[in-house]
Every structure is written in C-alpha cells, then in structure tokens.
Design a protein around this nucleic acid. Structure first.
Lengths: 356, 356
DNA sequence: ATCGCGCATGTGATCGATCACATGAGCAAG
DNA sequence: CTTGCTCATGTGATCGATCACATGCGCGAT
C-alpha cells in the first residue's frame, strides 16, 4: 500500500506574493514564533532549551505562539549550531534474531524518552569492511554515542581503530574486564544453567557454543566451563554452532555420540535443534537426555517438551545501556539472569546415575 | 563493557592559539578542503554532489584534499541547507518479532546503499497517543518518507491525520485496494496454505487469525475464507489469537473442539502453540490433525513435527518498500509467497475421509 | 572579427537554530 | 544616590553545507 498526502516539494508553481500571509510554504522558524509572541528569536530559543531565567508570562506567550504556528524545531539546524546530534547509533550484526531485535526496540524507546533518536547500522557481513562501513555511516551522522548489539571481537577491534572517537557501550562484559562493567552477566547465567544440570545428577554434560567470535558465546562457554571445573568435572564436551537450529541439531548429535546425558545450549534455537536431534535418534527428553537453553524466547514454553532455559531481561539491559551511554549516574549495571525450569530437564537415566 | 576513546567535548581547556595549525579541534569543513585544494568552497560542494561540469583534474585535487584532511561532510549542515534530511522513518509497533525485525534490517541496508539512513520509532502501545508520539518524533526529524512495518488500522488512520504530509509505504496491500499495490500478497499466501489442506482431502478446516486490527491478519483471514468459499466449504471455523504461541494453543483447543481436521494458523508461533495443543490432547500431527503456519521462521523446520508453512521473502519486500518510497521506476510490487511443505500436514484421519 | 552559448568556476546569501556578548531594569549594599 | 550584581531579554555572529547568481574563457556560427 502506498500513501501520500499532498507530497512535499511537488509544486513550485507558486511564488508570486512572497510576503503574502496566506501562501507560506515553509514551516515556521524561531523567528516566526518570535514575531507572533512579540519577543526576540533568542527568547524563543530559551524556551526551547528551558533556560532558567525566563519570566513565566514570557514563556507562556512563546508557547502559545508555538502552538498557534504549529512550530516544530528543526533538528538539522539544531544539530548544526549546537554540534550535538542527539543521535545514538546502534551497531548490529544481526538481522531479525530475537535477542538483538528485542534489545534494539528497548533502546529506541529509552532513547526517545530522553529526546534522542536512534539509527541502526547493520554490518551484514562479519568482515572488517562491512563493519567499517557501518561505523563510518554512523560517524557521518555524527552520532553522539554507539551501542553495540551482538558484538563480535572484530567489531570491537574496528571500534578501537576509529579515527573519530565516539563513546560506546556494549551489553556484554568483555572477557576479562571487571564483572560490573556490562549489563548482562552471561557467565553467571551459564553457571546457573550448568549447575542446574549438575544438581540433577548429570556427570557428563555437553555444551553447544555459539560462534567463538561472539562475546556472548565466549561468556556462556566460560560460565559452563567454570562451573564444571569447580566441581571437578570434565569441561571438554563442547561443540560449536552458529546460533541456528540446524547447527544445534548437528552439534547435539555429535555430543550424544560422546555419551553426554545433558546438554547446555548457548541459545534456545540451537536447543530446539538439539531437541529435534534427540527425537531423530529415538531418545526421549528429559528421560534420556536433558537440555537447557539460553534466552527464553517467547516460544520456548511451547517447544516439545517445554524448554528449561535462562531468561535475561534484555529490554532492561537495553534501557540501561542508554542510561550508561548518556552518563546517567544511577545506572546499576548488571541485570540478573534467571533460570526458568520447564520440562526439558530431569535426572540422568538410571544406568548412568552417580556410582555408574 | 564501556569504551571510550578520548571522549568528545571533554576538555575545553585549550584555545590559546586560535590560528595555530596544530591545535584544530574542529573537523574539516568544505572551506578547509577548498583551501587545501586551491579551489572555492562551491567547487568542493560540486564534487560532493557530483555535478556534471567539473574538470576531472579539479575533481581529483579536491578528492585528494578531502582524503588528506579526513573530511566528512556534515549531515546536519547538509540537511539544513538543502532541506533534505536523507532520512527514512520506520514506524513499527512491535518489538523483537521475527517478521518485523527481518524487514527492518533489510530496509536499513537498502536505505544505506542509497545514501539514506533510517530511524525507527516504535509505537509501543496500540493506542492513538503512542502512535501519534512516534509519528511526531519522525516528523521532528523531518523524515522524507515513512515505511510502516506491521501496520494496524489505527496506525493508518493516524497517518492520514498527519498535519505535515509525508509519503509513506506499507508492506501490505490495504484491504480493498488494488492487489498490485503492496509488496506482500498475503491473501495469495493464505489461499496457498488453505488450498494445500483442501487438496489433501480436509473438509473441515479451521483458521487461527491474528488480531483483527492488523492488516496482515485481515489479509490472511480473507485468503482463507476466499479459498473455502470457492470450494463451497464452511469458512466459519475461525478463532482469534494475538500472534503468540500461547494464544495459538488456546485457539487450537477451541478449533479441535469444533471437530476440525486441519488448522491454518496466521503465523508460525501460533502454529507452534497449536502443535503443543494437539500433543496435550493426545492427538498426533499430522495423523489426527494437520497444521500449516505462516512466515517460515528459521526454527519452523525443527518444530516437532517440522512445520509446513508459507514463506515470504520479507527481506526482498523490505528492499522494495525502500525503492518504492524513493520513487524508483522499476519496482515490481509483489513478492510471491511460497508454500513450504514439511511434516505437519497430511491426509485427514480415515474415519473422516470424503464420503464421511 | 563578433556574437552568443555552454562549460568550469567563484561570490555572497541563506537555511534555522545556538552561542557569545551586550543592555536595561530592579534591588541590595555602601 | 550611586555602585554593583543578578535577572530577563535582545543583537549579531556562527555552525557547514547548498542555492542563486555572477564571471571568465573557449569555440562554432554569422
């Protein structure tokens, strides 16, 4: 469906009476408002930026004039003269996945409520060039800050090499940096999931990891391994996927071949693939194999069986990213992950219980 | 993780030698480039907008100067003086769902390749106010055009009432308008799905519809009903959901209670809910009940059983929306939907076959 | 030769806001 | 009654591009 009310800039046929009050093709400016309100353009600007010293009556006159003229401040002019774009750039590498999309939506809302707008630049390839292109696009718009959603190591490297320095925030704790430094404690979430499986009595637990260049994947893997090591168990049953259900299916078959009784998957999609792998091998879940996912996508409760997974409040993390970027003082960094127990996990099969 | 290379606007402590060549805190402008290249600022501008009459040698000099100074045109200044924002606004009402998110990503890429950028405004509520807020935000940025993703009737109404007229495009054919007018022929997709079920021999087919105010839901419902009527079958087994798996579960139970042998669901999530409803009632799919979805989300092939569904090339539709909005000539409007047959559909149970 | 036209380029105004600085009024302190 | 300060407001320059309008030059037609 295509719609157009009058279509702007269509008719340049007018222009006879430049001073005619009726024919005013251009939108109202500060000067127009000033004239109507009987004040100077600067006073109008002061109202716009709510300057402290302004008589209430004056402010009201100006506000009335604005309403009368249906005045809208011109963002471009504002950005030019103040050299503040009020723009936050989102650098993303994904298209349509649940996690990133949710975060992006939340960022948009949080930014708008603070008078900022948001532009997304997607680096479709994983290669350096497409990341640079996306960054350069955001730089061209002179974004005041960046939020990196779904960051991969390449992206962070490119960010460091940026000629024009821009503050940025990612939602993940970078591997190795202080834990309070990110908004999502994914190491913790992964430990939660793994520990749940161990508490059920599993001894041989596998992990389907995301692509190693993703910070998220690194952190979830780290949590998995930390938890196993802390209990003197073998942390080497790891297969690598690409976040897709298909890769989860393949990885799960490999892990099952290695004799694991439980799998912690790096995300819910791969867990779904693992579920289907179990079925295709004639195994029941959780009877023969337990599976835990990560993310708690809205559909997870309707998988067969309903998936036990780790929920993170992504929207909240997005909001905090904005707050952090904008330098707001009271930002509590970490959003706590939560284990959602459903039907895909249980005790290991009899023959494999403790004293095996 | 928080990163900052120098942080802009931190130190205003300098300013001693205003003309000192070294201390140049401000980025290069057309004038700087002009000076270095030994031409006028207007010539630089001509290079920027690749004006036809420019000697090749001159253009090269300017380009060299640009590179040397690491020149980036200032988007705000450009927008101000040309009164063209080169901005496309996306009006969305969803957060994180597969379809919209995919479309948005594609729009972003298509826009960027044409030198446009994209801002998303999410109308989180369905109410008039939040739609107006989102629209007004986009208007403030003087977006040159809007793309409405996941449109509901309220949104379209608000769009008509816009004081500042802006061209817009939606991805759906509005109910009633010419079929070639939208990019996704969802009526056709729905007929494809329904006809597949009828061809398998089903006589009593139900539909789980999306929320009635969504254009997409309306069109899918229409296609379902058209197909049934064209074969003299009863089109009244319709339950309404809200796109979620939970609502699909409920709706499917209701339809099963009405004795349907097949269900066409308005999207894949609700189809997943229907799948789980069948299991919870002890029915097998497709033995006792056939189910078709809509969208072909990436996970659909891994549902139990793998879901038969209708695929639309959403990314392509997004790209065409951009082309259409930008008035490109060669836009073929409709993207053809495609039925993806997997394991969730089959012939109706014996006792209910033709001569029932 | 001369006119005229198109190409290549330059000059100054302009877009709509903010910024830096001035100015006048009111009021407390000397 | 003046000095001095703060509050409220105004004046003109400025941000970095484009736009509208010159201008100089070369070349084919008269």
């Amino acid at each position: 469906m295509t719609g157009t009310t009058p279509a702007p800039g269509d008719n340049q046929t007018m222009g006879v009476d430049r001073d005619n009050e009726e024919a005013r093709p251009r939108a109202a400016s500060v000067f127009d408002v000033a004239r109507v309100a009987g004040v100077s353009h600067q006073t109008v600007s002061r109202v716009l930026n709510d300057h402290p010293s302004l008589r209430a009556a004056t402010r009201q006159k100006v506000l009335d004039a604005m309403r009368e003229l249906n005045y809208r401040p011109n963002a471009a002019a504002r950005a030019l003269s103040s050299s503040r774009s009020r723009l936050i750039g989102i650098l993303s590498t994904s298209s349509g996945e649940y996690g990133p999309a949710t975060i992006v939506a939340a960022i948009g809302a949080a930014a708008r409520s603070r008078g900022y707008s948001v532009t997304i630049a997607n680096a479709d390839g994983l290669d350096r060039k497409s990341v640079d292109d996306a960054l350069s696009h955001l730089a061209d718009l002179s974004a005041e800050g960046l939020i990196v959603v779904a960051p991969q190591t390449q992206v962070l490297v490119a960010l460091e090499g940026l000629t024009i320095p821009v503050p940025y925030v990612t939602l993940q704790t970078a591997a190795g940096s202080a834990p309070h430094d990110g908004m999502l404690d994914q190491v913790r979430g992964a430990r939660l999931a793994t520990s749940h499986l161990l508490d059920l009595g599993h001894q041989r637990v596998g992990h389907i990891a995301g692509p190693p260049e993703w910070l998220d994947a690194q952190q979830r893997l780290t949590g998995f391994q930390e938890e196993l090591r802390s209990r003197q168990l073998d942390p080497r049953f790891v297969e690598i996927g690409d976040w897709s259900a298909a890769s989860g299916h393949r990885a799960a078959r490999a892990l099952i071949g290695q004799g694991v009784t439980a799998i912690f998957s790096g995300n819910d999609q791969m867990a779904l693939g693992a579920l289907s792998a179990a079925v295709s091998l004639g195994l029941t879940v959780p009877g023969d194999l337990s599976i835990v996912g990560f993310d708690d996508v809205p559909e997870a409760a309707y998988y067969q069986p309903a998936l036990t997974t780790v929920r993170q409040d992504l929207a909240e993390a997005g909001r905090r990213a904005v707050a952090l970027l904008l330098g707001e003082a009271d930002v509590r960094p970490v959003v706590d992950p939560e284990l959602i127990e459903r039907a895909s996990t249980g005790a290991p099969p009899e023959r494999l219980r403790p004293a095996h």
